[in-house]
């Protein structure tokens, strides 16, 4: 079903007929996503529509029952989640999953582990290479934290931080993995209006600065409509609409899905 892409810009992420069943329940059915390189895309839908399941499928936590997932043209069905991350997909979680008992600095330093530059042997024997690379790694992390304004919090234990800051650390941490595609799962959850504005600015900032493709799940419509260039709507696991924010707002089926039958006519 995918068109020839010779004239179109390359797709960072494409799912073809993605389906996931849990026993008798079909969480995601025949979903075709097309996310272009550099796009800021949104994935919305009522609760239980299958959005987080779709994320879990993309990042390899679940294996699809049917269908295919292509990242930069390559199939990512099969590899382990950590391999998929190393291929360039980062994500945050609906319920913030920081390493609670570790410091902010450690939380982000872990992202650099695959590229630490020293082996376990270096670490145990405390070779000069270890000291050099560890210092480099730490400084890179500190600089990274500074981008997000988190540098003063580096030695705070993650679980002691206020919610908004935890969310920022989580995003920073995901970015430290140097992804090409970033998946944000309800980043605005639990935030007050001021924090939401800050978040939207942050997302714009990282989108520009890190040359990222971003796919975001969100319930807060002002975030979705405010920053997304392209939106896909799921309901009961299926795609019911996609397009620009304006298209989606005017789509009857979408309004019905959120507000119930009959509401579509009022839109």
């Amino acid at each position: 079903m995918s068109k020839q892409n010779t004239q179109n810009p390359p797709l960072t992420l494409e799912t073809i007929g993605l389906t996931k069943r849990f026993g008798g329940l079909r969480a995601v059915g025949n979903v075709n996503l097309k996310i272009k390189k550099g796009e800021l895309a949104g994935l919305i839908g009522p609760n239980g529509a299958g959005k987080t399941t779709a994320f879990n499928l993309i990042t390899g936590l679940y294996k699809p029952t049917e269908g295919e997932i292509l990242f930069q043209g390559e199939s990512i069905v099969g590899p382990e989640p950590f391999e998929i991350t190393r291929m360039g997909i980062g994500r945050t979680f609906q319920n913030i999953r920081l390493f609670s008992n570790l410091t902010v600095l450690d939380n982000v330093r872990i992202a650099y582990h695959p590229h630490a530059g020293y082996s376990l042997f270096d670490g145990i024997a405390r070779t000069p290479n270890y000291y050099a690379k560890e210092k480099e790694l730490t400084e890179k992390t500190q600089e990274f934290l500074a981008i997000f304004g988190l540098e003063k919090l580096q030695n705070e234990v993650a679980k002691n931080l206020p919610y908004g800051e935890q969310r920022r650390v989580e995003i920073a941490r995901a970015l430290a993995c140097n992804p090409r595609l970033l998946l944000l799962d309800e980043p605005a959850a639990g935030m007050n209006p001021k924090e939401i504005v800050e978040l939207m600015d942050l997302i714009h900032l990282i989108h520009d600065r890190f040359d990222l493709t971003i796919l975001l799940i969100e319930h807060q419509m002002r975030v979705v409509m405010g920053i997304c260039q392209h939106i896909t709507v799921l309901d009961f696991g299926e795609v019911i609409a996609e397009g620009t924010p304006k298209d989606i707002q005017e789509n009857e089926r979408v309004v019905e899905a959120y507000l119930g039958k009959g509401a579509g006519h009022a839109a």
């Binding site: 007929g17 025949n30 699809p64 049917e66 295919e68 069905v77 996609e242």
Partner: peptide, 19 residues
């Protein structure tokens, strides 16, 4: 640009783990 949900059957792609 609005599209109706695709009604074609998804391609069956074999994803057997290697070895």
């Amino acid at each position: 640009m609005q599209q109706a949900a695709s009604k074609t059957t998804p391609p069956t792609i074999s994803h057997r783990p290697p070895l």
